[in-house]
Design a protein around this nucleic acid. Sequence first.
DNA 1: CTATTTGTTTATCC
DNA 2: AGGATAAACAAATA
Length: 268
Amino acid sequence: MPELAEVDYYRKQWNAGLDEVVSRVFVHPAARIFRDTPAAAMERGLPDRRFLKSRAHGKQMMFEFSGGAWLGLHLGMSGELTTAPADHVPTKHEHLVIVLESLALVFSDYRMFGKVTLEITDDEEAPLWWRNLPPQVLERSFTKSRVGEFVKRFPKTPLKTLLLDQRGFPGIGNWMADEICWQLKVAPQTPAGSLNDAFLDAIWKMTRFVSREAMEVIGTDWSDLPDSWLMNHRWRDGGICPRRGCKSELLRGDLRGRTTCWCPKCQE
DNA sequence: CTATTTGTTTATCC
DNA sequence: AGGATAAACAAATA
């Protein structure tokens, strides 16, 4: 489920434990989410450290603990972050539970496409991979020219597929990519190379618009996006295009392995 | 039993 | 080298 705004919503759930010290850690050692950092290293490395700060970057998250301990987290397809009472007993898909003083931080992920890493840095600086992430879509460094150059690098690739590329559009996921194409009135299958410069500017602007709205609506309390958006209509069979005066039936199909929804009338 | 899933990584070919 | 493509990963839900 989680894209840009959902990720930030989950990140903030864990903020309830800020400034508290880790007492113990529960793990499911065999879980695939520990493929980069073994579960035992989490159990060993986190206790007695203080939870100092949380950050999100696109779909990536970083939780900083005292003494230069950095917990990197990605929610994959089905990951969720919640909190629970400090005496919480982990359930089947709660692969990582960090017990603090007054509550516990819970990472559940039944499909296990998510990932968690723990790195200890001597200089207390964030790991290199984190510092080298591309500009975030809502930052000033995410410029019009950057978007233009990125899109032009892949002239054969469908626009929707490009929007899903985390190197260029960190945080954009399936529903956001479809929403951006729909709002732009362009078919998601359109090869990037066929778009003119003015349209590349529009992609930049719309990416930021959809991202900003999502952060305000979903990122704060997970309330609903407007019904005037594609988002609330895209999964229902026989869904109708919500654009004023359109009324066309929405189409759904596979584009490069991802379910894609679009309006055949508005998006030509 | 089969098909489907809001994501990334890896292998392979070009 | 780097782009294009498909498959793999896992488990719940319909």
